[in-house]
Design a protein around this nucleic acid. Structure first.
Lengths: 153, 153
DNA sequence: GAAGATTGACTTCTCAATCTTT
DNA sequence: AAAGATTGAGAAGTCAATCTTC
C-alpha cells in the first residue's frame, strides 16, 4: 500500500473519507432524532430552490448542485412533493422539464430546520476549525470538486 | 440561511460535502468500469485486515475503521466471504466474534486493485493539492473526525 | 438525435429486534 | 446485563431502458 501516491496526500485522502463518514453520520442521526426537522438531502434541495433566481429550478439544475444522478433527483423530488414541500409546475417555455418551486410549507420547513442544522454543523465540524483551516479547506476542496466534475483525466 | 455558523466555516462545510460526493462518485465509477478491480469499501476492509497485527480482526474493529454500523459490517463481510476474499474463523478465546483473515485470493485482489485505486486518487484528488494543503487537510479533518466519534457535544 | 425526466430491477446501507457468548 | 454479531423490514441511491419534448 505505497508508492504511486505521495504519502502525505494519501493520508489526506484517508482523513477525508473517514471524516466525512463520521461527521455526516453523526449529523444525520442527530437531525433524525429531532422532531419536525428535515433530513440533510431534503434541506439541500429546498435551500437550492430558495436561493434560485425566481425561486424556481428544473431537476437538471439539482443534479449538479446536490451531486446526485438524474434518477436519484427524480425520486428525491417525488418524496419532497409528496410531503408538500415543493410543487412541479409545467414550464411553458420548455415542456421537457417541470419547474420546481417551494410551497409555503417548504419555506417554513426550511426556516424551522436551519437552527438545528446550524447547531449540528457548529458542534461537529465548524467548532474544530480555525480561520486558516476553514479557508484552506474551502479553497482546496472546491478546486478538487470542480476538477472531478469536469471529467479531468 | 445565515447567522449561527460563521460564513467562512459554512463555506468549508458546503465544499466538504460536495467535494466528497463528486470525487468519491467519480472514483467509484472508474473502479467499477475496470475489470477485476474491487469497489472502494471492499478494498478498505481488506486493507485493514492486511494492516492488522496478526492479519486478523473482529468485525467490531471494522466498525470504527471503515465507519459503518455493525449490521453494515456484517453484510459487507458476508459479501467478501462469499467472494472468497476472507474467511471467518472461530476465536477460541472469545466465541462471540469470529476472527476475520485474508485468503490468498484476498491478498491478491488487494495487490491487483491498488494500482487502479492509486491512479484514481492521484487523478481526482491528490494532484490538485499542494503540500501545505495536504498537511492542513489531514490535521484538520482528523481532528474533526475524532471529535465526532467521541460524541463531542 | 439529444435533453429532461421517469421507472423497474437491484445494491447497499440503517434501525430495531434477536440470538449467543461473556 | 453487556458485547459481538445477525436478520427482517425498509430507505435511498445507482444503472439501463424508456418516454416525451425539443
Amino acid at each position: 500500500v505505497a508508492g504511486l501516491v505521495e504519502p502525505s496526500r494519501l493520508a489526506a485522502w484517508r482523513a477525508f473519507l473517514t471524516a466525512h463518514a463520521a461527521v455526516v453520520g453523526r449529523i444525520e442521526r442527530e437531525l433524525a432524532a429531532t422532531e419536525g426537522v428535515l433530513p440533510l438531502t431534503w434541506y439541500d434541495v429546498l435551500l437550492e430552490l430558495a436561493a434560485a433566481p425566481r425561486h424556481r429550478l428544473r431537476q437538471r439544475d439539482l443534479v449538479t448542485a446536490i451531486v446526485l444522478t438524474r434518477s436519484g433527483v427524480s425520486r428525491l423530488v417525488d418524496r419532497l412533493a409528496a410531503a408538500g414541500l415543493l410543487t412541479r409546475e409545467v414550464n411553458p417555455e420548455d415542456r421537457r422539464g417541470d419547474l420546481l418551486s417551494l410551497t409555503p410549507a417548504g419555506r417554513a420547513a426550511l426556516q424551522h430546520t436551519w437552527p438545528a442544522y446550524a447547531h449540528a454543523i457548529e458542534t461537529y465540524f465548524a467548532a474544530h476549525l480555525d480561520n486558516a483551516e476553514a479557508a484552506t479547506l474551502t479553497r482546496a476542496l472546491t478546486r478538487v470538486r470542480d476538477r472531478a466534475r469536469t471529467g479531468h483525466e
